[in-house]
Design a protein around this nucleic acid. Structure first.
Lengths: 194, 194, 194, 194
DNA sequence: TATGAATGAGATTTCATTCAT
DNA sequence: AATGAATGAAATCTCATTCAT
């Protein structure tokens, strides 16, 4: 028997979209259930409460990003190239509306989550991304494609470029079409060995 | 006769603190008036509504930042150094709790403001900062301290570094004490002429 | 084949415990089914609705109390002694957690039941207890162990002592360990012939 | 300028009536505000939340009872008579619909209150009644109108009679008109010196 | 008999804003 | 300018009950 998405999936999808479009507090149970075409009560039935729903939505996005990252990094020739791919993947993912990445931009996983437990879960999952990027930098330093920099510090700085780029490019009126490419160039210039 | 702050000032101060600490929607009129020790009704009386209050608070912070920026940039020898001072000033300002810079970080001037008019006012004022930074880069390119880069694109990329740095350093658990210095170094390395 | 309790029994046991611990309205179908480790839907399937479930639970407790009462009253030498045994049995039963007597204390069989029919059933069953106590008093007056009192009025007054004792001893912070004994003594003193 | 009751008072009165008539959980904010003819939001504005509202209502009743008790006990000739007056006052108060005593009977101050702080406040205020009764018993033992009993234990037992009487007389179908008098007689018989 | 997803009415609570004083 | 009571719409969350499987 061919089955479409479950109501739980419909709710999660609608929630991701609305969190992405309007942020955490502007997104209400009523709006979510209406967009999903599903009864309001199912939200707490399936997700417990609004915070857990947001956590589920956010983690989902992080997981997909990590997965995409790992896929795209396969077979990359050297560390510098890996960082470039990391950055490009990040920006591409962020711009792809199907990925609902804006959940993590429009909302704030580190301040919309109130309980320590939920924050911890989010942090733990987010950290995978950091580790992947740091691994790229380490590899670059080892293989000589990246100049002799501290891998940890450097990966954090690179991450700041990505985060700042997204906020600028997608949330403010200052970014233009080439911004993401400019940032990638700037990062690569700052890393590559001479 | 020696007079303390007016009630209007007390309210604005309390509002800034609460916006900084808990974001836009977690900050309520009741909390503000209680922290200020002032009657609730004065909020709408003086500021009109919540959005205008936030706009006032945000603009106040932007103005102070612009002022501080102009002061600190006086007598700087060259463009590259000017960019360095810009970045340092930005980070110092952000870390100074008296400045309530977190109003602009914890809240989002570009999504918590709903009306087009309010957004425009905020954008116009914020743009001063961009222009100052762009001026620094132009000067550096002119005086040879910065390599031959497009000043507009470059200033946006630098701004992304600052914005990303703040979000990382102050909102997530990933930044460490040296992060802001690392970002300044990275930016300067990326700009300076060889 | 050795069989454990049926799912229906598990549900009833869990319901009794939760009604005892938290009262009628704090006890939800979800909590009951979770404590019983049994599907939610079985509750309405087996018991109809919440009120019928409560009625079942309450009657169960009343029946066990009546049974225990009859057993303990067998072979009692005289009416006064019978009243003493009645009171002691009542208090012992109330304190025995396995009996879930608190169902009848924490909830209110006469106000949590809304339909007239359900109330009538409860009243009819409860009345057995009154009749037993009244019989004891009658017997005491007949055999001379109890002074010449109106058996009906007296049994109601004695019952008030028991009910008040339970509420005091088990629900408020004012009762102490000896309270139940004190009440028994007070009742016996008030009844016995001189 | 002649002023009627404030809206706060109207709400408290309506709340007391509804708690008395239908118990804690059947009483809703909507019903209260409708009966009071006042906006729903005023309930939390004035009383904080439902539990605090109930606490306020309950304490109000206890205070009035304590006051009435003190008034009625003035000029009583001896301890035994004082106990009789105490019991009569208690029952009269309970039957007077204007006093909303049923707030404390239909609801349960010791289980509808959830926070420890609220429970403590209630207990502290309730305890005044116990102390008054204990004082009466002490006095009776001293002046010879009451036989030589432990005043504390005795006052608790007497209280159980009153509490049980109220529950029986007002909540169950077993009490009749003379019940309260019967209980007073039983208590006095049990206490008086011979 | 057994399961738990599904429903939607209704509960408490929040809150910006209004307004009489 | 100053106060805080008053309003009511809207938010989150609860929950008995139904029903398809």
């Amino acid at each position: 028997m061919a089955m479409g998405p479950t109501k739980k999936e419909l709710l999660l999808k609608a929630a991701k979209e609305l969190f992405s479009e309007h942020g955490y507090s502007e997104t209400t149970f009523k709006k979510i259930s209406e967009r999903a075409g599903v009864a309001l009560g199912l939200l707490t039935h399936h997700f417990g409460n609004k915070e857990k729903l947001f956590l589920t939505a956010g983690l989902d996005v992080v997981h997909e990003l990590v997965q995409t990252m790992r896929t795209n990094l396969q077979g990359v020739p050297n560390g510098l190239e890996a960082v470039r791919i990391f950055a490009k993947t990040y920006f591409d993912f962020a711009r792809n509306p199907r990925q609902d990445f804006m959940v993590l931009v429009r909302c704030s996983p580190f301040s919309d989550l109130k309980t320590v437990e939920d924050k911890d879960v989010m942090i733990r999952n987010f950290s995978e991304l950091y580790e992947i990027l740091e691994e790229c930098v380490k590899r670059g330093v080892r293989d000589g494609s990246i100049r002799d920099l501290d891998p940890h510090k450097t990966s954090v700085v690179v991450f700041c470029n990505l985060v700042g780029g997204i906020r600028h490019g997608l949330l403010t009126p200052y970014g233009d079409d080439g911004l993401f490419d400019d940032i990638v160039d700037f990062v690569i210039y700052g890393l590559k060995a001479r």
